[in-house]
Measured scan of single mutants.
Amino acid sequence: MTFKLIINGKTLKGETTTEAVDAATAEKVFKQYANDNGLDGEWTYDDATKTFTITE
């Protein structure tokens, strides 16, 4: 399955995708991506669209 991450950061904005077997796996990938890029914010997830959002 394809999951999307929408980034609404103070300095970084955009989106990225990952292929994962489930939402929990995708969340780990996206949280590592956010950590690697210095993002810290509030996370939301929409199961209907398989989309995570981080807002700083």
Rank of each mutant, 00 (worst) to 15 (best):
residue 1 M to P: 13
residue 1 M to I: 10
residue 1 M to A: 14
residue 1 M to D: 11
residue 1 M to S: 10
residue 1 M to E: 15
residue 2 T to G: 08
residue 2 T to V: 12
residue 2 T to F: 07
residue 2 T to R: 12
residue 2 T to A: 07
residue 2 T to D: 08
residue 2 T to K: 15
residue 2 T to C: 05
residue 3 F to C: 01
residue 3 F to E: 00
residue 3 F to Q: 01
residue 3 F to I: 01
residue 3 F to W: 11
residue 3 F to N: 00
residue 4 K to Q: 04
residue 4 K to T: 13
residue 4 K to E: 03
residue 4 K to R: 11
residue 5 L to N: 01
residue 5 L to Y: 01
residue 5 L to I: 02
residue 6 I to N: 07
residue 6 I to M: 07
residue 6 I to D: 03
residue 7 I to T: 06
residue 7 I to L: 15
residue 7 I to D: 01
residue 7 I to A: 04
residue 7 I to E: 02
residue 7 I to R: 02
residue 7 I to W: 15
residue 7 I to C: 04
residue 7 I to Y: 15
residue 8 N to W: 07
residue 8 N to C: 04
residue 8 N to F: 08
residue 8 N to E: 11
residue 8 N to K: 11
residue 8 N to M: 15
residue 8 N to S: 10
residue 8 N to T: 07
residue 8 N to P: 03
residue 8 N to I: 14
residue 9 G to T: 15
residue 9 G to E: 04
residue 9 G to A: 06
residue 9 G to P: 03
residue 9 G to H: 13
residue 10 K to R: 13
residue 10 K to V: 15
residue 10 K to P: 14
residue 10 K to M: 15
residue 10 K to C: 04
residue 10 K to F: 13
residue 10 K to I: 13
residue 11 T to I: 11
residue 11 T to A: 12
residue 11 T to Q: 14
residue 11 T to N: 14
residue 12 L to V: 10
residue 12 L to Q: 09
residue 12 L to F: 12
residue 12 L to Y: 12
residue 12 L to G: 13
residue 12 L to R: 03
residue 12 L to I: 14
residue 12 L to M: 10
residue 12 L to S: 08
residue 13 K to S: 11
residue 13 K to C: 06
residue 13 K to R: 08
residue 13 K to E: 15
residue 13 K to V: 15
residue 13 K to Y: 15
residue 13 K to D: 08
residue 14 G to I: 12
residue 14 G to Y: 08
residue 14 G to F: 15
residue 15 E to W: 04
residue 15 E to M: 03
residue 15 E to R: 04
residue 15 E to I: 03
residue 16 T to H: 12
residue 16 T to F: 12
residue 16 T to G: 08
residue 16 T to A: 13
residue 16 T to L: 12
residue 16 T to E: 07
residue 16 T to R: 11
residue 16 T to D: 05
residue 16 T to S: 10
residue 17 T to W: 14
residue 17 T to A: 08
residue 17 T to C: 04
residue 17 T to V: 09
residue 17 T to I: 09
residue 17 T to S: 09
residue 17 T to M: 07
residue 17 T to D: 09
residue 18 T to W: 07
residue 18 T to C: 05
residue 18 T to P: 01
residue 19 E to C: 06
residue 19 E to F: 09
residue 19 E to A: 10
residue 19 E to P: 08
residue 19 E to T: 15
residue 19 E to D: 08
residue 19 E to I: 12
residue 19 E to Y: 12
residue 20 A to Y: 02
residue 20 A to N: 04
residue 20 A to I: 02
residue 20 A to V: 07
residue 20 A to R: 03
residue 20 A to K: 03
residue 20 A to G: 05
residue 20 A to H: 03
residue 20 A to C: 05
residue 21 V to S: 14
residue 21 V to T: 09
residue 21 V to N: 15
residue 22 D to P: 01
residue 22 D to E: 07
residue 22 D to A: 03
residue 22 D to M: 03
residue 23 A to L: 07
residue 23 A to F: 11
residue 23 A to S: 13
residue 23 A to Q: 07
residue 23 A to N: 06
residue 23 A to W: 15
residue 23 A to I: 07
residue 23 A to R: 12
residue 24 A to F: 06
residue 24 A to E: 13
residue 24 A to L: 11
residue 24 A to R: 14
residue 25 T to C: 05
residue 25 T to M: 13
residue 25 T to Q: 14
residue 25 T to N: 08
residue 25 T to P: 02
residue 26 A to M: 01
residue 26 A to N: 00
residue 26 A to S: 02
residue 26 A to V: 02
residue 26 A to H: 00
residue 26 A to F: 00
residue 27 E to D: 08
residue 27 E to W: 14
residue 27 E to K: 10
residue 27 E to Y: 14
residue 27 E to G: 08
residue 27 E to P: 00
residue 28 K to I: 10
residue 28 K to T: 15
residue 28 K to R: 09
residue 28 K to N: 06
residue 28 K to P: 03
residue 28 K to Y: 14
residue 28 K to W: 13
residue 29 V to T: 09
residue 29 V to I: 11
residue 29 V to A: 07
residue 29 V to E: 10
residue 29 V to R: 06
residue 29 V to C: 05
residue 29 V to G: 05
residue 29 V to Y: 15
residue 29 V to W: 12
residue 29 V to F: 10
residue 30 F to Q: 00
residue 30 F to E: 00
residue 31 K to M: 11
residue 31 K to G: 05
residue 31 K to D: 03
residue 31 K to Y: 07
residue 32 Q to P: 01
residue 32 Q to I: 10
residue 32 Q to E: 10
residue 32 Q to S: 08
residue 32 Q to L: 13
residue 32 Q to T: 12
residue 32 Q to W: 09
residue 32 Q to M: 14
residue 32 Q to G: 09
residue 33 Y to L: 13
residue 33 Y to A: 03
residue 33 Y to E: 02
residue 33 Y to Q: 04
residue 33 Y to I: 10
residue 33 Y to K: 03
residue 33 Y to R: 02
residue 33 Y to T: 03
residue 33 Y to V: 05
residue 33 Y to C: 03
residue 34 A to H: 01
residue 34 A to V: 15
residue 34 A to L: 06
residue 34 A to R: 02
residue 34 A to E: 02
residue 34 A to M: 08
residue 34 A to F: 03
residue 34 A to Q: 04
residue 34 A to C: 05
residue 35 N to K: 12
residue 35 N to H: 14
residue 35 N to D: 14
residue 36 D to Y: 06
residue 36 D to C: 05
residue 36 D to H: 14
residue 36 D to N: 09
residue 36 D to K: 08
residue 36 D to V: 12
residue 36 D to T: 09
residue 36 D to I: 11
residue 36 D to G: 08
residue 37 N to A: 14
residue 37 N to F: 06
residue 37 N to L: 11
residue 37 N to Y: 12
residue 37 N to D: 03
residue 37 N to G: 04
residue 37 N to E: 11
residue 37 N to P: 01
residue 38 G to M: 13
residue 38 G to I: 05
residue 38 G to L: 15
residue 38 G to A: 15
residue 38 G to R: 09
residue 38 G to C: 06
residue 38 G to K: 15
residue 38 G to W: 05
residue 38 G to Q: 08
residue 39 L to F: 13
residue 39 L to Y: 04
residue 39 L to W: 14
residue 39 L to G: 02
residue 39 L to Q: 04
residue 39 L to H: 06
residue 39 L to N: 03
residue 39 L to I: 10
residue 40 D to N: 12
residue 40 D to V: 14
residue 40 D to W: 06
residue 40 D to P: 05
residue 41 G to L: 03
residue 41 G to N: 01
residue 41 G to V: 03
residue 41 G to M: 03
residue 41 G to T: 02
residue 41 G to W: 11
residue 42 E to K: 07
residue 42 E to T: 15
residue 42 E to G: 09
residue 42 E to V: 12
residue 43 W to K: 00
residue 43 W to Y: 03
residue 43 W to V: 03
residue 44 T to V: 11
residue 44 T to E: 07
residue 44 T to K: 10
residue 44 T to P: 00
residue 45 Y to S: 01
residue 45 Y to V: 02
residue 45 Y to Q: 01
residue 45 Y to K: 01
residue 45 Y to E: 00
residue 45 Y to N: 01
residue 45 Y to F: 04
residue 45 Y to R: 02
residue 46 D to W: 03
residue 46 D to K: 06
residue 46 D to S: 06
residue 46 D to Y: 05
residue 47 D to I: 07
residue 47 D to K: 11
residue 47 D to V: 13
residue 47 D to T: 13
residue 47 D to A: 13
residue 47 D to F: 08
residue 48 A to C: 05
residue 48 A to E: 14
residue 48 A to Q: 09
residue 48 A to T: 15
residue 48 A to Y: 11
residue 48 A to L: 11
residue 48 A to N: 08
residue 49 T to A: 08
residue 49 T to M: 10
residue 49 T to L: 09
residue 49 T to V: 11
residue 49 T to C: 04
residue 49 T to H: 15
residue 49 T to W: 07
residue 49 T to G: 06
residue 49 T to S: 10
residue 50 K to S: 13
residue 50 K to I: 03
residue 50 K to G: 10
residue 50 K to N: 10
residue 50 K to P: 01
residue 50 K to M: 09
residue 50 K to T: 06
residue 51 T to M: 07
residue 51 T to S: 12
residue 51 T to Y: 03
residue 51 T to G: 02
residue 51 T to C: 04
residue 52 F to N: 00
residue 52 F to I: 02
residue 52 F to D: 00
residue 52 F to E: 00
residue 52 F to Y: 06
residue 52 F to L: 01
residue 52 F to P: 00
residue 52 F to H: 02
residue 52 F to W: 10
residue 52 F to G: 00
residue 52 F to R: 00
residue 52 F to T: 01
residue 53 T to K: 05
residue 53 T to C: 04
residue 53 T to G: 03
residue 53 T to L: 05
residue 53 T to V: 08
residue 53 T to W: 06
residue 54 I to A: 02
residue 54 I to G: 01
residue 54 I to K: 01
residue 54 I to Q: 01
residue 54 I to L: 11
residue 54 I to N: 01
residue 54 I to F: 13
residue 54 I to R: 01
residue 55 T to E: 08
residue 55 T to F: 09
residue 55 T to M: 10
residue 55 T to G: 04
residue 55 T to N: 12
residue 55 T to R: 11
residue 56 E to K: 03
residue 56 E to H: 04
residue 56 E to F: 05
residue 56 E to M: 05
residue 56 E to D: 10
